[in-house]
Design a protein around this nucleic acid. Structure first.
Lengths: 114, 114
DNA sequence: TTTGATACCTAAAAATCTTAGGTATATTGC
DNA sequence: GCAATATACCTAAGATTTTTAGGTATCAAA
C-alpha cells in the first residue's frame, strides 16, 4: 500500500463525499467501505477517523443519530445543510488540486505541437 | 486558490519530481516555477519549502551546490542516486493514490451497465 | 531612496496523523 | 464452553508537516 502521507488533508474530503453519496453512515462503516472500495489499498486508521468525525460535528457540517443495535451503539453521521455545501466545495477543490498537480507533474511544454 | 490542506504530504513529491525533470533547481526557483505552472493557483510557502529541502538533504535524497550570483548566494539542489529512486517511487505512489481516490469518490456501481 | 523582487533562513504555533492503547458486544470455529 | 475475530466506539502521547510570522541581505526599477 502507498504511504498514507499522501492522504493527509483528504480525509475530510472523503468523509464529506461519502456522506453526500450514501446519506448516512457510521464510523466503522466508513472505514470498512473505504477498505473494500480500494481493494484493501487504503485503510483509514480509527485514531484519525473518529477525531475527524467529531470535529466535523463540532463545526456543524455533520449531525449524529445514535442507534441501538442489539446492545451495541452506532452513531450514524449525515450532512447538515452547511455540510452539503462544504461537500460540494471540497470536491471542487479536490478536482482543482488534481488539475494543478497535473500541470506541475506533467508540465506544459512550449512548442510541443509535433 | 484551493485550500492548501490538500497539498499536505505532496510537497516532497513535487520537489523530487521537479528535480528529476529539471536536473537542478534552487529553492526560490522551485516556488516560482510552481506558481507560474499552476497559473498562480498554488503557492508554496517558504516556511514549508526550505525545511523540506533541508530534510531531503539530511536524508541523502538531494545534494547541494552553492553558487555565487553577484553577491547573492544560490543553493542548487539535485537528486542523488537514492533521490532518483525515491522520486520514481513517490510518483508511482502518487498515481496509485489518485486511482484509489477515484475508486472511493466515483464508486464502482454494480450492474450499472445501462 | 523607497519599493518590490530575489534569495536565503528560523521558530512558535496549529493542524493532522500514527501509534498504541482502552472498553464492550457479537459471532464464529474448535 | 471458550478463544479468537469482528464489530463499534473512544482517547492520549508523540511525530510530522504546515502555517504564520517573522528575520537578513542584495539588486533593480520607479
Amino acid at each position: 500500500m502507498f504511504s498514507r502521507e499522501l492522504l493527509k488533508g483528504t480525509l475530510r474530503t472523503i468523509i464529506l463525499k461519502l456522506l453526500a453519496e450514501k446519506g448516512r453512515m457510521y464510523g466503522y462503516e466508513i472505514s470498512q467501505y473505504v477498505k473494500t472500495q480500494s481493494d484493501g489499498r487504503l485503510q483509514l486508521t480509527e485514531g484519525a477517523l473518529y477525531p475527524s468525525l467529531h470535529k466535523l460535528e463540532k463545526e456543524g457540517l455533520v449531525k449524529v443519530e445514535r442507534e441501538q443495535v442489539g446492545k451495541r451503539m452506532r452513531k450514524y453521521y449525515s450532512l447538515t445543510v452547511a455540510g452539503e455545501k462544504a461537500s460540494r466545495s471540497r470536491l471542487a477543490e479536490f478536482e482543482e488540486f488534481l488539475q494543478v498537480m497535473q500541470l506541475i507533474i506533467q508540465p506544459k511544454t512550449q512548442g510541443d505541437g509535433s
